[in-house]
Design a protein around this nucleic acid. Sequence first.
DNA 1: CTCTAGACATTGGACGTCCCATCTCCTGTA
DNA 2: TACAGGAGATGGGACGTCCAATGTCTAGAG
Lengths: 243, 243
Amino acid sequence: MAIASQEVSPARFSAQLRSHALQTRIMDLILERGLDVGDAMPTESELSAELGVGRNTVRESLKVLQALGVIEIRHGFGMFVAPNNFSALVSGLTFRGRLSLRHKGEEAMELIDVRQALESGLIGSAIDLLTDQHLADLRTTMEAMEDAAKKGEHLYVHDAEFHRRLYAPLNNELLINLMDVFWQVYRKIHLALGTGPVNLEQQTQDHWDIYEAVANKDKALASERLQRHFDGIRLKLKDVAAS
Amino acid sequence: MAIASQEVSPARFSAQLRSHALQTRIMDLILERGLDVGDAMPTESELSAELGVGRNTVRESLKVLQALGVIEIRHGFGMFVAPNNFSALVSGLTFRGRLSLRHKGEEAMELIDVRQALESGLIGSAIDLLTDQHLADLRTTMEAMEDAAKKGEHLYVHDAEFHRRLYAPLNNELLINLMDVFWQVYRKIHLALGTGPVNLEQQTQDHWDIYEAVANKDKALASERLQRHFDGIRLKLKDVAAS
DNA sequence: CTCTAGACATTGGACGTCCCATCTCCTGTA
DNA sequence: TACAGGAGATGGGACGTCCAATGTCTAGAG
């Protein structure tokens, strides 16, 4: 009965500490009951009764947990422990980026910096662990990208897929999710600013270049080309932000 | 059944898309009104009226935005656009980590991997931009850590401070926040598992070693020692998780 | 016997109202 | 001038009610 850490006198504390405490209690409840990813949570009413708070209050916490990717809420069905999912961060970070663009776009640029550091820093390890299968997958993605480019379609999906598969060998879900978040935020900011003209062929060629370096297991070259790739992205962003 | 021109009738969409849309509307409202960090938001009632949704509904979204670090809510005073703040992620990631520890601790380990990649990958750039002031700050932190170690106190604060200051030269708030989040999550998971015996002197010496390499601007050595530092952390975690 | 359409129960979504808790600021008094 | 206390505003919370979505069960058609 790990009621543990029950506050004794919520008299002078509290601010938003209470709601945070409630979120924690719900997460603890999941852990204590041994619920795992995909398992059903108690209903809102049950939680409300069990935790001794109103249903609205519980709902506020649940919405937060949903936003944090802890639980998944399905209307008319129930709530479940969610698989790792960082999509929530996207909203917050996108907001940050757009907010910063009103000044000098510093935060948006920082985001690119982090992405660049992560990707160009990890490409070496990824190449070490690269198998033929991974390479084949990567090539498939590239071919799809080329097709899309020829048709004049957006490359968003393929671009994202490329970067995702590039680091698949590392077998690190957290990393993939994180990079995905950054990628999506960049895209959203870019969209929000209104996309300038895009050179689909050039974009595709950039990726082919990276692919080639990776296929040759040339770590230094791959890292450098990734670096350059991000320099390009950074320039494009700076360009649009200057408007 | 003639549907009399519903105002906003995303009839078939409705899922949690609605609440997400509401969050977006609030963020857009902030951007449209040109509100900046620290500025006051409309009150809950105003938002409720303006967005045409109930106050409870608006509150759920506001709580989420608070969790995402977009706004700051001060009971009895008002709501404000928040400075960048990732503390929310800590909760979610910590939960993930603890959940994963019931299996094989994979996710917790992934977190260390990402931290390791980020830190050892970026130390080079940080050293490039290192000034005497940064170095002096770092030394101050180390001395404080040593003091604490001698007194037998926990090194948490100093450890965090060290890693934070190590990358201060990069002048990238996002990165600092991100690493801070990872650090806190690691600490929380570690605490939740029950801390084994800690060797304060060894821990301090590890950091001194890193400091030394940085002070000598020896990028390779610094990177290697950071790598080793994280290997130690990883072992400790694996050790505790095995229980 | 099988398949499908519709009723039903369950569960989350939204809202309104009422009252409490907390904060800031202003006023009045010493 | 300084401090104490009140007023007003704002968020926090709890019910209760009704709506909407979803899965399941059942009855009827074939």
